[in-house]
Amino acid sequence: MARALDVIGERWALLVVRELLLGPRRFNDLLGGLSGMSPNVLNQRLNELVDCGVVNRRDLGAPTRVRLYELTPWGRELQPVLFQLGRWGTRAPLPPDGELGVGSLMLSLLAGFDQARAGELRGAYEFRINTETYAVEVADGLPRIRRGTVDQPDATLTTSIDTLRAVCGARTSMAVAVRSGDLRLDGDQHAVQRLTELLLAPFTPPPDA
């Protein structure tokens, strides 16, 4: 434990890892997803995580000259650790200004996915939230989520982050959001139903809860 904390125990380090679980990110994208973190601290954490072998720094070169940060295979092994830590943290009080970002909501799908309740759920879906697009692919009873698109998705969901928070937080229903035009579902009836179950299952208590 002490050796692990030497690598990821500094403040913000695990949250940087969390932001990279869904795929590579640019420095400014990371900064935007970590409210309250200063650019200097983010730069320091990234340098430390790169030096330790948890994060890889990659330059795309001309003409884009974009620098990306992504998890190494060793860094990706932290995913189940982070999910378990997140489940443990759900019993802690929410901060007064705490709101889940898009990435956090997508990770909640993974962290809360109950394979036993999923049954034969499978398919490829797109979640289009504000300006971000996430590819969600379910196979062998497990979802895989990444930033990006899907070739010929079975169904797509298009909405704003505020509406998604309201639906996942049970402040409104999917049906109400669709009727109001705040949320759009595209695809055949069965695929849309599977996408709806995929989205809501992690936020819905089991029948015997």
Rank of each mutant, 00 (worst) to 15 (best):
4 A>K: 07
10 E>R: 13
12 W>F: 15
14 L>S: 05
14 L>Q: 12
15 L>K: 09
18 R>F: 08
23 G>M: 02
23 G>H: 06
23 G>L: 01
29 D>H: 07
30 L>F: 13
30 L>D: 05
30 L>C: 05
31 L>V: 13
37 M>V: 15
40 N>G: 06
42 L>K: 04
45 R>N: 02
47 N>G: 08
48 E>L: 10
52 C>D: 15
52 C>K: 12
53 G>N: 11
54 V>D: 01
54 V>S: 02
55 V>L: 11
57 R>L: 13
60 L>H: 10
61 G>L: 12
61 G>A: 04
62 A>T: 05
62 A>W: 09
63 P>F: 05
64 T>V: 06
65 R>K: 11
66 V>L: 10
66 V>T: 11
67 R>G: 04
67 R>H: 09
68 L>R: 09
69 Y>S: 01
69 Y>F: 14
69 Y>P: 00
71 L>F: 14
72 T>H: 10
75 G>N: 02
78 L>F: 13
80 P>R: 02
82 L>E: 15
84 Q>A: 11
85 L>I: 08
85 L>V: 13
91 R>W: 10
91 R>E: 10
93 P>K: 09
93 P>M: 10
94 L>K: 13
95 P>K: 03
95 P>V: 00
96 P>K: 13
99 E>I: 06
99 E>A: 11
100 L>C: 02
102 V>Y: 03
102 V>D: 12
106 M>E: 11
106 M>A: 08
107 L>D: 08
110 L>I: 14
113 F>T: 04
113 F>E: 01
114 D>A: 07
115 Q>I: 05
116 A>F: 00
117 R>Q: 14
118 A>Q: 13
119 G>A: 09
120 E>F: 04
121 L>Q: 11
121 L>M: 11
121 L>T: 04
122 R>S: 13
123 G>Q: 01
124 A>E: 15
125 Y>N: 09
126 E>K: 09
127 F>A: 15
134 Y>R: 04
136 V>F: 12
137 E>P: 01
138 V>P: 07
139 A>K: 11
141 G>C: 01
143 P>I: 05
146 R>I: 07
150 V>S: 08
150 V>W: 07
156 T>R: 14
159 T>F: 10
161 I>T: 14
162 D>V: 09
162 D>N: 03
164 L>M: 15
164 L>K: 05
165 R>T: 04
165 R>I: 03
166 A>L: 09
169 G>D: 09
170 A>G: 01
171 R>D: 14
172 T>N: 08
174 M>R: 06
174 M>V: 13
175 A>E: 15
176 V>W: 00
176 V>R: 14
177 A>K: 03
179 R>A: 15
179 R>Y: 05
180 S>L: 12
181 G>A: 00
181 G>Y: 01
186 D>C: 06
186 D>H: 08
187 G>E: 08
189 Q>T: 15
191 A>Q: 10
191 A>W: 08
192 V>G: 00
193 Q>M: 12
196 T>H: 15
198 L>C: 10
199 L>C: 03
206 P>Q: 06
207 P>C: 03
209 A>V: 09
209 A>T: 04
